[in-house]
Design a protein around this nucleic acid. Structure first.
Lengths: 338, 338
DNA sequence: GTGAAAGCGCTAACAA
DNA sequence: TTGTTAGCGCTTTCAC
């Protein structure tokens, strides 16, 4: 009595279930996948056996024989920085809702060996598809090396041909934000850039476009790193120049660093200098003064990206592009010049 | 001439490689895994064939037959919030360094169906191991439901028996931080808590311990959500009470919200009220005033967690516990009472 | 050092 | 509706 069916100590397999239920292996498979009809009686026997053995089908075996997988890979240069983390969260939420699992592959640099390692790790897997965060040079490099034999979607800020893509129209938002500052009466707007993914960076492009359209002078671009503190010396330098009355920063963290530098130099935001950022970081609203910035729906970007992937898995003529225009969050860090 | 070896349009398999190289399939396998010796001549032929066909072994087939996998699963209640994102980053870095891939499974709530879904998704996979972020109730619930048949490690702030575990000793750090405030001359320290994972929360425990040891009164605990803005009304309420001179917040984001509330109420930090946080958020140093907080090495926690997992995969008598004491970052948001 | 044979756990194709 | 047969792409015996 009570002897366990199946090999002791091992996970039960589908044939253990079949044996216990008194049916054939394919019938168990039919119950599992729901692909074909099974009589109610047998179905119940099978389900009882599954429950009794606490059976879980082996994903590896399924993938091997069916050549189909419920796993997608996300390739990203980073997983924890705000925009990256939120985008991955959006992908995961959309994927989970459709019963897919997410595998993360980080590409630290655009270094050839590193990119190859990441691409090979992905190509070994049998995957339903791949999403690449084309936010930075490693992401761009990985995308270029990736084979196109499986569904593939890129996520980024600038449109490019080739791979299906979901984007946030950063250039349009940056242009709108810069135009807003000019409209406030500023003669021009200075720009602090975060490390760009390529020669063209949507935020910088939009900024420049707004200045050109307004016939405003285009000051030299200042470069920050991803590190918020890198904005501090830039802010001090900017504060020392009386010509500077408005600054557009490539992201909110840098804007916060720049504001700190301006404060250290004894000048005030927004009374002396207006500062705006990009991304609508969770702390932007809490900052003093609350930061005027661009609401980037990264989680939405991730969700749109997965939707695009899903479409291209099921439909030959799937959409190849999804764009969304971010909105500006008007807060207190920008004001007319005195 | 030029006819491709292998089935057209399909990925090449190991037998295509064997055929092209003029060796048997197992020999190719030996070259791939490096498990057994192969003569230099054959090895070269095989490597040439692999390169020519751009062959990648199928991970699914390998896993099926060898019952070994180079993938680990991470179960987490969240992926994008600071502590979570950094911990996952640490796990991924350590895993990647050892050639492992990370699969993410999010458990949104401690709801039974949701926990079961996540656990089943994990148990279907053939995995080298599982890391659970026991930071919140969903994490705790998932850990409890998870079978113990494969290597498993929990990451959290409070020690418990059972599963091997890496922790940050939050209770000790909280006690030290609270004692520091008392040492500054504050009569007592108020506490704003973030949603706890269980009845016992290390941060709250350490705070209470320090107060008891100093015979200081223990004020009622105030509850915030994970949302930084939830700290604002709490800060206003605290500022209205003249008894309040020092506040210990469950994390930095809440501390920032509380400080904003205090400012809105017209009182100053640290002159009127000292505020300290927990985690050393990237923006804590940039805040005005710079926030005194606890440096939590989440990435290090993740790395230690993976190390524990690796040990328990290879060694029966592996360590079952790794603890680290976070350090306090003394900055300007805490000062003696006036 | 190398190859032949077996089979991992499942689904697909077919026949009944 | 159900069972039989075949085989996914690899690694693992086991001879030689």
């Amino acid at each position: 009595m009570g002897r366990t069916v199946g090999r002791e100590g091992k996970n039960p397999t589908i044939s253990d279930v079949a044996e216990l239920a008194g049916v054939s292996v394919p019938t168990v498979s039919r119950v599992l996948t729901g692909a074909a009809k099974v009589s109610a009686a047998k179905r119940e026997q099978v389900e009882a056996a599954i429950a009794e053995l606490n059976f879980r089908p082996s994903a590896a075996a399924r993938v091997l024989v069916s050549r189909k997988s419920r796993t997608i890979a996300v390739i990203a240069g980073n997983t924890s920085r705000y925009g990256y983390a939120e985008t991955i969260r959006g992908i995961e939420i959309a994927a989970r809702a459709e019963g897919y699992t997410v595998m993360i592959t980080v590409v630290e640099s655009a270094d050839e060996d590193e990119v190859n390692r990441a691409v090979e790790a992905v190509e070994m897997q049998t995957l339903a598809g791949v999403v690449v965060l084309k936010f930075d040079p490693p992401g761009v490099a990985a995308l270029n090396r990736l084979g196109t034999d499986r569904p593939l979607v890129a996520l980024s800020g600038t449109r490019e041909a080739g791979v299906p893509q979901a984007v946030l129209d950063e250039a349009a938002a940056a242009e709108e934000l810069t135009a807003y500052l000019l409209g406030l009466g500023h003669r021009t707007v200075h720009h602090v850039r975060v490390p760009p993914s390529r020669r063209v960076d949507g935020r910088t492009t939009g900024w420049k476009r707004a200045l050109r359209k307004a016939d405003a002078p285009v000051p030299p671009v200042l470069d920050a790193t991803w590190e918020p503190l890198s904005g501090v010396p830039i802010g001090r330098a900017l504060a020392a120049d009386p010509e500077v009355t408005a600054v557009f920063c490539g992201n909110d963290e840098i804007a916060m660093g720049v504001m700190r530098g301006i404060a250290e130099a004894g000048r005030r935001v927004p009374e002396d200098i207006s500062v705006v950022g990009f991304d609508d970081h969770p702390l932007a609203e809490l900052w003093s003064p609350p930061l005027t910035t661009v609401e980037q729906d990264f989680a939405g970007l991730g969700q749109r990206g997965f939707a695009l992937l899903l479409e291209s898995m099921n439909d030959e003529n799937a959409r190849r592009y999804s764009s969304e225009r971010p909105r500006i969050a008007f807060r207190a860090s920008a004001a007319p010049p005195r």
